[in-house]
């Protein structure tokens, strides 16, 4: 077990008439090493909040997060984080963006340089090392972001709707790429999405969440092996799983009126 969440809850203080908003309440979860777990739910269900707490960017109001046997209190370099936007630094070339983590870690060297090039080759951007991000398409930018996180070989990868801004075809390609790149490394992946197909396609387990207050509505095991191609979506078993997720979501329809801004309006750890 690499990650353990015990009775996690998060309450935001707001100035609205509703008073405090419970973004997340009593989440208990255990995640095994090498697992791909996706979190799916409507906006306001606290899935991004949860991910940010696992990343150490946000503190839970109650409960404990134990990562690799140690309580999580601050960000760890053994955890990689990917955002919905690529968040590339526009003044840095593709190569230098991927070298950013090693610069921050103070491990800048020829070795890292070579490793960065290898990873960029791996994500199919070997010909774009010197390009500025603004000259790349959205999908390519997200590949750079993936390379930037894979380059320092974290043990766990947290992805906050990383392909949500991409078109459907690019998203599908990126899903396959993600599996191709992460499966051989045995990295644990936590993947937040609001796309049910994506959630089922990628994951070993799907955590279905419901809003107000955000909580786990149910967990669906995905019994497909590691080798996955788009064809498994034709599998009746796949469709069943999608409908199970859907029915878990079903009794708690998304309601944007109260909590929609929670995901975007989270505070992060102070300096």
């Amino acid at each position: 077990m690499i990650l353990q969440l015990r009775d996690i809850s998060k309450t935001y203080r707001t100035r609205t008439p509703q008073g405090n908003v419970e973004a997340l309440t009593s989440v208990d979860l255990e995640i095994q090493e090498g697992e791909v777990v996706s979190f799916v739910g409507p906006s306001g269900c606290g899935k991004s909040t949860l991910l940010n707490m696992v990343a150490g960017l946000l503190r839970p109001t109650t409960g404990h997060i134990v990562f690799d046997g140690e309580p999580m209190t601050e960000p760890s370099r053994r955890i990689g984080f990917m955002f919905q936007q690529p968040v590339l630094l526009p003044w840095r070339s593709v190569r230098k963006n991927v070298l950013l983590p090693s610069e921050v870690f103070g491990s800048k060297s020829d070795e890292m340089n070579q490793r960065a090039e290898e990873v960029l080759q791996l994500v199919g951007l070997g010909d774009f090392l010197g390009a500025l991000p603004q000259h790349l398409s959205g999908g390519m930018q997200q590949r750079v972001a993936l390379a930037r996180v894979l380059v320092y070989e974290p043990r766990m990868l947290l992805m906050d709707e990383p392909f949500g801004a991409l078109d459907e075809f690019t998203r599908e390609t990126m899903n396959l790429e993600l599996l191709r790149l992460t499966k051989p490394t045995g990295i644990t992946v936590l993947f937040v999405t609001h796309n049910i197909l994506e959630a089922v396609f990628l994951a070993d387990r799907v955590v279905v969440m419901s809003p107000r207050p955000g909580r786990v509505a149910g967990i669906v095991d995905v019994p497909f092996g590691e080798e996955r191609a788009i064809e498994i979506m034709r599998n009746p078993g796949f469709t069943d799983l999608v409908f199970r997720v859907r029915s878990l979501l079903g009794d708690t329809p998304g309601d944007d009126s109260m909590t929609s801004d929670l995901d975007s309006d989270r505070e992060s750890v102070r300096w």
């Binding site: 960017l57 601050e74 370099r77 984080f81 955002f83």
Partner: peptide, 21 residues
């Protein structure tokens, strides 16, 4: 952009690194 700072935080960058980089 907030996410740029959060990216640096997730890498445990120092205050100084976040400022200069």
């Amino acid at each position: 952009p907030r996410d740029m700072v959060r990216l640096m935080q997730s890498l445990r960058a120092s205050r100084r690194q976040i400022f200069t980089k």
